[in-house]
Simulated scan of single mutants.
Amino acid sequence: MSTPPSSLKQDWLHTPFVRVALPFINGGLAGMTATAIIQPIDMVKVRLQLAGSAADSVATGGAMAVTRPTPFSIAREIVAAGKVLDLYTGLSAGLLRQAVYTTARLGFFDTFMNALTARAAANNTSDASKAGIGFGERALAGLAAGGLAAMVGNPADLALIRMQSDGLKPAGERANYKGVFDALLRISRNEGITALWAGCTPTIVRAMALNFGQLAFFSEAKTRLKQLAESQASKSTQTLAASAIAGFFASFFSLPFDFVKTRLQKQTKRSDGSLPYKSMFDCFRKVARDEGLLRFYRGFGTYYVRIAPHAMVTLIVADYLGWITK
């Protein structure tokens, strides 16, 4: 696998415009592939986070559910209430989010790294690692790319949450969105265009925390594993193990922000026009007070099972696409 297929090495692939666009295109395709595989897990994760919300209980005048839901009970209820395909509710929004978010995230990161590499070349050094492109700069590039991409992709992310949580409402109150574009249109028409950026702050912080966990701990774990198992494990095995470790820390750092983002994006105005949560900090405060600090980590196992494979599939597909188009 040292030379890409000659049939794919066309002159148009090496034009300046295509070379700039390829990191974004490959990143988007990789993210969409991973989302198509992981979507059922994401659906269960969102339902698990929203189950038994204190704000929903107050809004509906009911009491908090006594039975604590589990990923398996939620998946069983979804299948029992409809069809297996219900686990793919919101897939169109998930694919759109990846087409925007992952395209931007990986594209920006690659662009930033190319700029750092160019700076290394300007310093008369061919070895980037010796030109000051260390862990700190790579981490900052990842944080910046994640934050920018999250801001751009927030509308699609909000539509995904609304579509996945719609089934939790009473039948007469459901929006029954026909697809992601129908959701975006109706939300902007009924709540204003700015509503598409509801939960934007925790979304950006979540993306930065997620990227930090992946970058910092993937790099550290890979180095440690290489030292400990240089002669006992293959390079691919070390990479997969490091990805799993990075996925754990990425999940740990980002889950509280993902939880708050989900709550903020799911909420709609009450009959009096008010919202359950006024801001990210208000949501953190009320959930911690009414539901306890551990509530932020409910569904950690499900979240990890979603984050780690999604990251692995995305990176593997992106790497392959980069190889056949280089």
Rank of each mutant, 00 (worst) to 15 (best):
G27Q: 10
V317S: 05
A244F: 13
P202H: 02
A55W: 07
P276Q: 02
T111S: 08
R138W: 10
G31E: 06
R119A: 07
T302E: 09
F217G: 00
P202L: 04
A308W: 10
D157G: 13
G52H: 05
A242L: 01
D11I: 11
C283M: 03
A128M: 07
T239L: 07
E230F: 13
S92R: 04
A221C: 05
D166E: 05
A150H: 02
A121Q: 10
M163G: 01
S271H: 09
Y297R: 05
Y297M: 14
S251V: 13
F259Y: 15
E137L: 15
A144Q: 00
R224V: 14
A241K: 04
D290I: 06
V79M: 07
D56L: 12
G31I: 11
P16S: 01
A288H: 04
V313I: 15
P40K: 04
F257M: 09
G107D: 00
L8R: 10
A175G: 00
V79P: 06
Q232P: 02
K83L: 14
L275Y: 11
L240P: 01
V205Y: 10
R119W: 13
S73V: 08
L240R: 01
A229N: 14
G136K: 00
Y277L: 03
M64T: 09
A120E: 02
A288E: 06
G301W: 14
P16I: 09
G28L: 12
E77S: 14
A75M: 15
T237S: 09
G292N: 03
T223S: 14
R189N: 11
V84P: 03
T262Y: 05
Q238A: 06
I307T: 12
F281M: 11
T60F: 09
H310Q: 07
E173F: 04
A54L: 11
F24N: 05
I324P: 02
R206Q: 13
Y297G: 04
I74H: 07
E191H: 12
A59V: 05
M312L: 09
R306T: 11
M312D: 00
T102F: 15
L48A: 00
A55N: 02
S7P: 06
S254L: 12
A65C: 08
A104N: 08
V152F: 15
A65E: 12
L22E: 07
A175L: 07
L50P: 00
P4Y: 10
Q10F: 10
L95P: 01
L91S: 03
